[in-house]
Every structure is written in C-alpha cells, then in structure tokens.
C-alpha cells in the first residue's frame, strides 16, 4: 500500500493550484524515494516536474511502485476542501482504483476523508538530462511574478538576457516596449530580497510570456525562484519547497523562423 502524511498540507494545495491550469491530467508516481509527477502541457511546449522526497513527509510508506492517474481539476476540487492548517494524509491500496485524502485539523477535532477515483492516463515520460547551465539566476519569486505579469501587458514574448551583473527582461508589442533589469544583490540583512547570478557564459533567449505567467502561479511555494538558461535549450524555472522537494517547469525557447 501507499500512505504518506504531510503535516503542512497547504504545500500540496499550493502545488496543485500551481499546475492545474497548465496540465489537465497526470500520473503521480510513488516509490520508496518519494512522490513525483512529470507531465507536458496540452500543446507540448512546456513540461512540469514535481518531486517530493519521502523524507519530506512525516510518515511515508510505499510497498511497491504505483502510478496514480488523476485529473488535476478534480484533485484541486478535493484539496480545496482541506483547511490551510490541516495535515493531509494520502492513502491507496495496491491495485486500488481510488486514492483517499484525509484532512486533520491542527487540534485534531475535525477529521475528513475524500476518495478520488483514479484514471488510466497514457503519458509520455521524457528524459531530462542533468545539464550544466550557462547562467543561473536566483531571484525573489514575487519579483519574477511581477515582471512576467507586467511585461505580458505589453508583449507576448520576453527576451531574458543574463550577464554577470544583471538579468534583463525585455518585450515589444503593438503599444510599445518594456525592459526590466534586476541587478545582482546578495543582500545579507534581507536574504528574502536577494538576487544572485552565476554565469559561465552570457546568454539571451526568448520565451512565451503566457507560459512564464502560468509557472509563476507557484510563487506561494517559495521565497525565491531559480532560472536556469543555456543557449538554444529550454529554460528551467524552479521553485524549491523547503525540506520537501521542488517543482520545476521547463519551457522551450522561441526560435526565429
């Protein structure tokens, strides 16, 4: 059987809220090392990879590898019934056709159980190579969210360019153009506001803002977002979930035709 208890159930709620508009359905894969998901959006332009480590749960048991297919909209409906301070336990029997979500209030006075029917989902698993990136930028997640939202009111795509001192986001549209630059700032007194840049090679790539705005829905998961860029490769937009794992998004760059 599979059983996993997350004291901070809100994390699971935030993860599902962050991906439910991007991917329709997905297989949640559980094994000894943890709980994971990999899925492409319906247009196959971006990829979501979630990884929650077994040791990030207060209790974790997985007797055999299971893959549980779920429609994200339905999972979201159920998780919206959990309180923000509730602990969430997920349970499923081997070869079972449902997954049970148990919500426990902090004072343990309220206990609720919701069963979600599992589905067979045919999904393609992609091999994500372990790559060294030309540039890695760590910036406040709220800042990234604001930039991609602001730029989307001007244009459809953003050019992200990274040099050793700064990261620049630029767009053009019918009404004009916009540029936002964030300088490296390893602020020690306010670490939550720091912007850190690590580059081996300056890099500039163009991406669809629509997808970056969708990824930014993961902002509540983490104070910072990590952007990884290499010439002609998909950008990685990574949210680290403290002590539990990470949610990563991959987006193919726009190419000149």
């Amino acid at each position: 059987m599979f059983e996993a208890r997350l004291q901070q159930g809100a994390l699971l709620k935030k993860v599902v809220e962050a991906i439910k508009d991007l991917i329709e359905d997905a297989n949640f894969d559980c094994n000894n090392s943890g709980f994971s998901l990999q899925a492409m959006d319906s247009s196959h332009v971006s990829l979501v990879a979630l990884s929650l480590r077994a040791d990030g749960f207060e209790h974790y048991r997985c007797d055999r590898n299971v893959s549980m297919g779920m429609k994200l909209a339905n999972l979201s409906k159920i998780l919206k019934c959990a309180g923000n301070d509730d602990a969430i336990t997920m349970k499923s029997e081997d070869n079972g056709d449902t997954i049970t979500f148990m919500f426990e209030s902090q004072n343990q006075e309220r206990l609720s159980e919701f069963d979600l029917k599992l589905m067979d989902i045919d999904s393609e698993h992609l091999g994500i190579p372990e790559a060294e990136y030309d540039a890695t930028v760590k910036l406040p997640s709220s800042e990234f969210q604001r930039i991609v939202k602001d730029l989307a009111s001007i244009g459809d795509t953003v050019e992200i360019s990274v040099t050793k001192d700064a990261v620049k986001f630029g767009t053009n549209g019918d009404i004009g153009s916009a540029n936002v630059m964030c300088r490296q700032n390893k602020s020690v007194d306010k670490p939550e506001e720091s912007t850190e840049i690590d580059i081996t090679e300056p890099v500039a790539l163009t991406f669809a803002l629509r997808y970056l705005n969708s990824f930014a829905k993961a902002t509540p998961l983490s104070s910072h977002v990590v952007l990884k860029l290499s010439k002609d490769l998909p950008i990685v937009v990574e949210y680290h979930i403290e002590n539990v794992g990470r949610l990563s998004f991959f987006l193919a760059p726009k190419v000149e035709e």
């Binding site: 196959h44 992609l126 091999g127 190579p129 998909p234 193919a252 190419v255 035709e257």
Partner: peptide, 14 residues
C-alpha cells in the same frame, strides 16, 4: 516571425 518547438524535441522519450 518566431516559432515554438515542442519540449519533446529537447528531451527524448524515456
């Protein structure tokens, strides 16, 4: 114009 490639073009199927 600019085109958009599939993510699968970068990461092969496993």
């Amino acid at each position: 114009g600019s085109g958009q490639r599939s993510i699968a073009a970068f990461f092969g199927s496993k």
